[in-house]
Design a protein around this nucleic acid. Structure first.
Length: 239
DNA sequence: GCGACAG
DNA sequence: ATCTTGTCGC
């Protein structure tokens, strides 16, 4: 897919926060365009003791969740991990990978927060706004906000609040596992976000999109099975 | 000053 | 995120 200008050059943490305050005005939480037929998942891993960032993006058919395409990209790591500024560390490599994609997804599920962020601008917002693509934040742990314990059953939910503002949903994707922190990133509603995550989830805690992206980013290959089906590596090409 | 803190 | 083997539980 066509990815426009790179991302911000080397910035310091103060500048990064200022950029977030500026870009947050571009976030639009509106109904996700329908129908959704292609869902992407993105994730990053590191090599050379963190010196190199490896990003992966996969595209699955929806709601079938069968592999359609994927892309991987590597580039020097130029920003440290700072809570609240994750996108400045991972987005450059992710955009490189997105640029190598042959097909354009209808929505992207990101590994990290959407608006459930101190400045309401997590990595899902940054990626979504940058590509003007619908994006959802799917985090494995909490960054900000308070919540009750969601019911211990698949689909169990609890509202994630920052004061009196709802910034996300704490979602149990399967019985007996730690819940995920879901929040809109761009061009999706809170309800769309939960629906899409559940729609992409099968037998594991993480949605299939995230599982595939993580597998490609850290192991360099697809999982043996996606949504319960053996993967046809030949059809799911990537470069 | 003392914790908390996506990946 | 990453360094790393076995092990407890459904």
């Amino acid at each position: 897919m066509q990815v426009v200008p790179p991302i911000s050059p080397s910035v310091n943490t103060a500048e990064a926060r200022a950029i977030q305050q500026q870009l947050r005005t571009r976030v639009r939480l509106e109904p996700c365009p329908s129908p959704v037929t292609r869902v992407a998942g993105v994730d990053v891993g590191f090599e050379q003791a963190g010196a190199v960032t490896r990003a992966a993006v996969v595209v699955l058919s929806y709601p079938d969740l069968q592999p359609l395409a994927a892309a991987v990209a590597r580039r020097p790591t130029e920003f440290p991990y700072v809570p609240g500024l994750l996108s400045f560390r991972e987005l450059p490599a992710l955009l490189d990978a997105m640029g190598r994609l042959e097909v354009t997804p209808d929505v992207v599920l990101c590994d990290g927060q959407g608006i459930a962020h101190p400045r309401r601008f997590g990595i899902a917002c940054h990626l979504g706004v940058t590509l003007d693509l619908p994006a959802v934040g799917v985090a494995k742990s909490r960054l900000v906000g308070t919540h009750e314990t969601p019911p211990d059953e698949k689909g169990g939910q609890a509202v994630l609040l920052d004061g009196d503002e709802q910034i996300g949903v704490v979602l149990r994707t399967r019985t007996g596992v730690k819940p995920l922190y879901i929040s809109p990133g761009h061009r999706v509603t809170m309800a769309d976000s939960v629906r899409l995550v559940l729609g992409c989830t099968h037998r594991y805690r993480l949605p299939e999109t995230t599982r595939c992206a993580h597998s490609l980013a850290s192991h360099g290959c697809w999982p043996s099975r996606v949504a319960g089906q053996p993967v046809d590596t030949a059809a799911a090409v990537y470069r």
